[in-house]
Design a protein around this nucleic acid. Structure first.
Lengths: 161, 161
DNA sequence: CTGTATCCTTTTGGATACTG
DNA sequence: CAGTATCCAAAAGGATACAG
């Protein structure tokens, strides 16, 4: 699991893309020149594995919600469970373990009875907060459009009974 | 599936949070005042459903890669399949359908023989590109740290044989 | 309170064959 | 070339019981 570190995506050496340039640098910037066969970018998509590793961590059902909540400050296990509607005991544990393993969350257990455990974002975890919140903001802003589009699509594509 | 539109997360009326304030506005900004029992924010996390809807779309195995590639310009089915290493025919179809349904991708079929179909991001899809790329950039930048943390954790927590 | 283990259901996704 | 349908294996995730 040792890809190239931070190759590409870093800025510098932009290349004209086939379409408009809406969000600044593309996914593929900084890659070696293309074989000039008209392909736009990223033949074999070297960052794909890196991206998928991260997305796999972030993209599960609960991770982003946990990170988002911890962004407001440290919290205990039960506190998190109470706030995240519908999460099961097992999934919260599992999510927190994975985040801890990846160095995004720090777990602090106080040797008391009954036990008390606090979870908090690490600096690395906090650095994730920014792109996460950007996505959350996008979600909040555009959710109505998604719903509308969905309804329209479903109306136009009735499933054959 | 009709939540409140863009409630919260919009800026204005910040509230002191229990910890530092790393990434600007928190997940919970703009919510009605808390019951003052020491809780930090977002009792029942009303955005949770909205967030999960979006995360569910973005968080699957291939969506972000497809969106990222389409960010470089329109592409045909086979082109996408060739570029995204490991994606199956079925999954690419399914991913594109879901994106089309949500209004993020526009599908254009040319009535030729053999058939030619082009996929392109809609304006809404392009608006997603920005937060997406932010996340991708984060992934590229911090992947090494994740790997390191992971190795360290695994070394410290040998699984019981 | 926090965490682990077990069981079982649902979902995801790959392989493949077939259609226009 | 693009798309659909079927079948099947693997993974995710919920419920529950139990332990420190």
């Amino acid at each position: 699991m040792s890809d190239h570190p931070a190759a590409a995506l870093d800025g510098a050496s932009p290349r004209a893309s086939a379409a408009s340039d809406p969000a600044g640098p593309s996914l593929c910037e900084g890659l070696p020149p293309l074989p000039a066969d008209g392909a736009v970018c990223a033949r074999d998509f070297p960052e794909a594995h890196t991206i998928r590793t991260v997305i796999a961590r972030l993209g599960d059902k609960w991770t982003l919600l946990v990170v988002g909540l911890l962004g407001d400050g440290p919290a205990r296990f039960t506190e998190l469970q109470r706030r995240i509607d519908g999460i099961s005991h097992r999934m919260l544990t599992q999510t927190l373990r994975a985040l801890e393993r990846d160095g995004l969350v720090r777990r602090t257990a106080y040797p008391e009875i009954p036990p008390r455990v606090e979870y908090a974002l690490t600096p690395l975890g906090r650095s994730l907060l920014e792109p996460t919140l950007a996505l959350v903001r996008w979600a909040a802003e555009h959710h109505p459009e998604l719903t509308t589009a969905r309804d329209r699509y479903d109306a136009a594509h009735p499933e054959p009974d």
